[in-house]
Amino acid sequence: MDRLTSMAVFVKAAETGSFASAGEALGMSSQLVGKHVRFLEERFGMRLISRTTRRQSLTEAGRAFYERSKAVLAEVEAAEALADSLQAVPRGKLRVNAPVSWGAYSLTPMLARYVRKYPEVSVDLTLTDRVVDLIDEGYEAVIRVVPIADSGLIARPLAPYRLVVCASPAYLAERGTPAVPEDLAEHECVGFAYWARPPDVDWEFKSAQGTHRVRLKSRFSINNGQALRAAAVEGAGIVLQPRDMLQEDLAAGRLVELLPGFEAPSLPMHLLYARDRRPTPKLRSFIDFVVETFGA
């Protein structure tokens, strides 16, 4: 028998004064009430209730055990209430990992809104272009801008990571403006070297005529999107970077979008998290917030 259940039955028997009354209150037979009490007596090697044909009363040990049992059951009830509340209200620390550029320019503003909506959640955000191990490194959610292999994690697709090709007015004044993707082969293109791959050597565009794949000529590669942006603004060459990151420079005229008749490449983006039959409210709320904001 379960000790906590037997303790609860014993407490009810002590409070009602009979096995029959306790059974009626608990929805069980008086015989089953007696079995629970005898289970405790045999387990602890002491009589808890003195029983005669006319009445029953607690022994000295029974009175002490009754008080302690009430306290234990109250603690259990409080723990269950706490667990229920934790399942109902998002709270606690949430560890998230995301790529550097996208995390800085897109995810961080969303997180500012998220923590305002859920004031009992704190977020520990790590930005890195390295592919992290969600389980081993203790993250609850990871956003990845790479094709996803079968990892045993749940992968929620998000809107593709949109890129734009652009350069500074000064660079274009000196070198000319490419009209078609094939013209890029004659330009300086600043490559992006990141996590598990070498610098870009080919860029791919699409148009009504099909796919255009261009082999780049680049003397300059950088592993950070913000540094690539700075290089482009200073006229180092043509870059292919996220539209979100370059939007202000494009609006201000510091950069000029190129090849308007051709669709720049985009990258698949996913939100990853571990399989769990009952995700915590903080993780569930974060997943919903991300999908609502960046969903496909």
Rank of each mutant, 00 (worst) to 15 (best):
T280R: 14
P268R: 02
L255C: 06
L246V: 09
Y273H: 15
Q241E: 15
L255G: 02
V239A: 03
R275V: 15
L250S: 06
D244M: 04
Q241W: 12
V256F: 02
Q247A: 15
R254Y: 02
L250E: 02
A231G: 09
A274M: 10
Q241H: 14
D244E: 13
L267S: 02
A252L: 13
A252H: 11
L272C: 04
L272R: 02
A236G: 08
L271Y: 00
A231Q: 12
D249S: 12
R277M: 14
A252N: 11
L272S: 01
E257M: 05
A251S: 10
A252K: 13
L267H: 01
P268W: 01
L240K: 09
E234Q: 14
G235S: 05
V256P: 08
R229K: 15
R254H: 03
D249V: 02
A230V: 09
M269Y: 01
R277Q: 14
V239T: 00
F262A: 07
G261P: 07
P242G: 10
G261H: 09
A251V: 10
A227S: 13
E263Y: 03
Q241G: 11
M245F: 08
P260V: 11
L267N: 00
R275M: 11
A274D: 09
M269I: 00
E257K: 06
L271R: 01
D249L: 06
D244K: 07
T280C: 07
E257V: 08
G235I: 10
V233E: 07
A231W: 06
L271Q: 02
R243V: 14
G237F: 03
V239C: 03
R277Y: 13
T280E: 12
P268A: 04
L240N: 15
A252E: 13
A274F: 08
Q241L: 15
R254V: 04
T280G: 07
R277D: 15
M245K: 00
A274S: 12
P279S: 00
L255N: 00
L250F: 10
Y273E: 03
G261F: 05
P268L: 01
S266P: 05
G235A: 01
P265S: 10
R275T: 12
D249Q: 10
P260T: 10
L258S: 08
L259R: 01
G235N: 05
S266Y: 02
L228T: 06
Q241P: 02
V256M: 03
P268H: 04
E263H: 07
D276L: 11
G235E: 05
D244I: 12
A227I: 11
A251Y: 09
R243K: 01
A232T: 13
V256W: 01
E257G: 06
R275L: 13
E248C: 08
E263A: 15
V233G: 08
G261C: 03
